[in-house]
Design a protein around this nucleic acid. Sequence first.
DNA 1: TAGAACTATGATAGCGCTAACATGATAGCG
DNA 2: CGCTATCATGTTAGCGCTATCATAGTTCTA
Lengths: 344, 344
Amino acid sequence: MSNQDPSRTRRRRGSAQPTLKEVAAAAGVSSITASRALNAPERVNEETRKRVLEAVDRVGYVPNLVAGSLASARSRFIAVIVPSLANAVFIEVIRGLQATFEAQGYQILLGNTDYDIEREHRLVRTFLGWSCSALVTAGLRHTPACRDLLEHCDKPVMEVMELGEALDLNVGLDHREAGRCMARHLLERGYRRIVYVGACLDKDYRAGLRFDGHREVMEAAGREAPLIELDRLGSLEAGAAGLDRVRDAYPDAEAIHFANDDLAAGALLHGFRLGLKVPDEIAIAGFNGLALGQHLTPRLTTIKSPRETMGRQAAEQILRRLDGKRVTRRQCNVGFELLVGEST
Amino acid sequence: MSNQDPSRTRRRRGSAQPTLKEVAAAAGVSSITASRALNAPERVNEETRKRVLEAVDRVGYVPNLVAGSLASARSRFIAVIVPSLANAVFIEVIRGLQATFEAQGYQILLGNTDYDIEREHRLVRTFLGWSCSALVTAGLRHTPACRDLLEHCDKPVMEVMELGEALDLNVGLDHREAGRCMARHLLERGYRRIVYVGACLDKDYRAGLRFDGHREVMEAAGREAPLIELDRLGSLEAGAAGLDRVRDAYPDAEAIHFANDDLAAGALLHGFRLGLKVPDEIAIAGFNGLALGQHLTPRLTTIKSPRETMGRQAAEQILRRLDGKRVTRRQCNVGFELLVGEST
DNA sequence: TAGAACTATGATAGCGCTAACATGATAGCG
DNA sequence: CGCTATCATGTTAGCGCTATCATAGTTCTA
C-alpha cells in the first residue's frame, strides 16, 4: 500500500498557534522585521513597528520563546536552586531574586534539592539544558561533578546564603561568625551552661557552621559546648521537643542556643505552656530574625539576616554581569544583626 | 576588505556544548538512535543503549531541552501562578505541586502576580510561550483576555484554592462555606457581637468570600456583621493593629473573626502583651490552620485547609490528563476542618 | 512457506525563531 | 561629487532536537 498522496510532503504541525511568519505576512513585512519589531524596536521604523504590533493583536500571536531561545542560544531563565521550600528563609531570598529578575523580564526556574547535593547536580543539568542565563544556588557545597558543570558552563554562577570559597559570584553572610556572636552575647549575659540545639546539622550544614563558631567561643572561655541534635528540620514542634530534651539531658542548663528561630519560637511557646519562666529559669536564643520571634513575649533574642536583600543583591550582581559589565567585587557580605530581646 | 575566507560558510555557534550528534558519533549510531536511547529506552536494543549512555558520559553531554521542546512542540514545564510568595498558604500548595510533578520529571515555572490579574495575564502569555504542558493558577478570577488564552490553549488548565465555575480543572474548597462554618461556631459558642477583620479584601477576594459567608449566617441570626478592613495583607503586625482597631471602634465586641491565621495570631500575641484575657474578654478566630496557631496559648480556633494535599491532588489530576486519560471529575472539593482551640 | 507483525535502526525534514550577512536608500562630509 | 556612515529591511542558514517515514532483519501465524 502506497501513500495516498505521495506528492504531499511530510507534515508536521507544531502548536497550531500563529507564528511570526503569519504576523509578518499580516503586516506586510518579512519575518525578521517582525522579530525585530518585537525584540529590538529601535532597529525598526516607528510606522512599521506599529503595523507589526497591530498584526500581533489581530492574529493573536504569542511568541514561541522556545524557538527564540534555541535560535539565540540563550533564554531569559534564571535557575534558582534551594534546599527547601518549607523554610521561610529561602522563600525570602527567592522573593528578593524574583522581584529583581522579573522586573528585567527574566523568569525564575525554581529547583528544590531537599538538602541533597545529588539532586542539586541533577537540577543543574536540567537547568543548563534549558539554556538558563545564570544559576543561583544556596550554598557552597556541591558534588564534584556538579562543581565541574558549574565551573565550565560559562554562565554567571551565584552562590548565596553563606560566604567562602565560591565558584564565581557569592553573596551571603558568615555563619561561623554569627554563631560566635550569639555565643558571646550569651556569655556576656552571664550564662555559663549553654546548650546548642540544632536539627539535622549534616543537611543544614550552615547551622553546623554556626555551632562551630559557638563552640569556638565557648571553648575559648573555658566552657563546654554540649550539642543536642534533633532529627527533624526546623519547626515549632521540633523546638518544643528540643526544650524537653535539654531539660532532660542537662537539667542545670541556663541557656539554649537554637539553630534557628523556628526551633527557638517552638521552645518559647512550649515553655510558656509548661509555665517555665524565660529567661529566669532558662534563656532562649535563635537565629534568623523571623517576624514571629519579635512578636512573642518575651521577645526572642536572635540574629537577623537580610534575606530579601541578599536575593536582591545577588540578582543585581548577576544582571550587571549579564549586561556585560565586569563585576569587580565577586564576594559580598550582607552581614547580620544581633537582636536582643527579653528571652536572654 | 573581503572576508578572509569566502568559501567558509556562515558560522554560528550555539552553546559550544557537545550535541546529540557528537554523542551519536562517539557511540557509532545515528543521532536519532541516541535520542531514543535517552528518551525512549524501550525502543532501543539494550547493548546499543549502553553504548550511547557511555558516550554521553564520555563527551559530557547535557541534553538541550530547548531544542527538544521545539522539535516536539511540548516541554516538561508546568506553569504555576500564585498571587504571592509572602503567604505561607501558597507556598504549601506549591510544595504539593512540586513534589508530585518533580517526581514525574516535570519542572515548575513559578509566577507571582502580586494579586494583580493583569500580571497574571502577562505571565500566562509568557508561560504559553514556553510551551508549558499545563497551567495551574490560584483562583477563578482572570482578565477576559487571559480567560480567552486559557480557554483556547488546548492544555490542561487547573484552577486551585477555591471552587466554582472553572475553565477546566478545579481543585479547592468552598470559602463561603468556610466563612459560614466559623460564624456558626462563634454563634454557637454564645458570642453575639462579632467583628470580621480582613485585609485588602479586593485583592484577597477569597477572604472576601469568607466574609460573605460569615455575614450570611450573622444576618440569618438577626445579627450585624461589622467589617474592619486593614490595608496591609496578612502579617502579625497587621493582626495586632486589627485588634487595636476593633477595641477602638467596637469596644463591646465579644469576638473577632480574622480573615486568616497570620492576623489572628498577631492579635493573640498582641493581646497577650496587653494582658488581655482571651477568650474571656475577647474571643479570636482565624483561618488556615497554620502550625503557629496550634502552638499558641490559648490555641487558636481556626479552619484548616489541606493545602499541600490540594497541590498534590491538582498535580495528580493534571498528570492523569497528560497521560491521555480522561479526567471525569473535573471539580474536586478538598474540604476543610474546623479546629476548635481555646481562643473562642 | 508466504505473508503479517514486530524489532531495531536510519534518512530526512522540519519545529519557529534569530544571527549573520546582504542590499538599497538616504544622509553626511570634505 | 564620490565616498563612507547610517538606517531600514530582506535573504539565508542554521540552533539541536524529534516526528515521520523508510528499510532491513527477525519472529510469528496459518
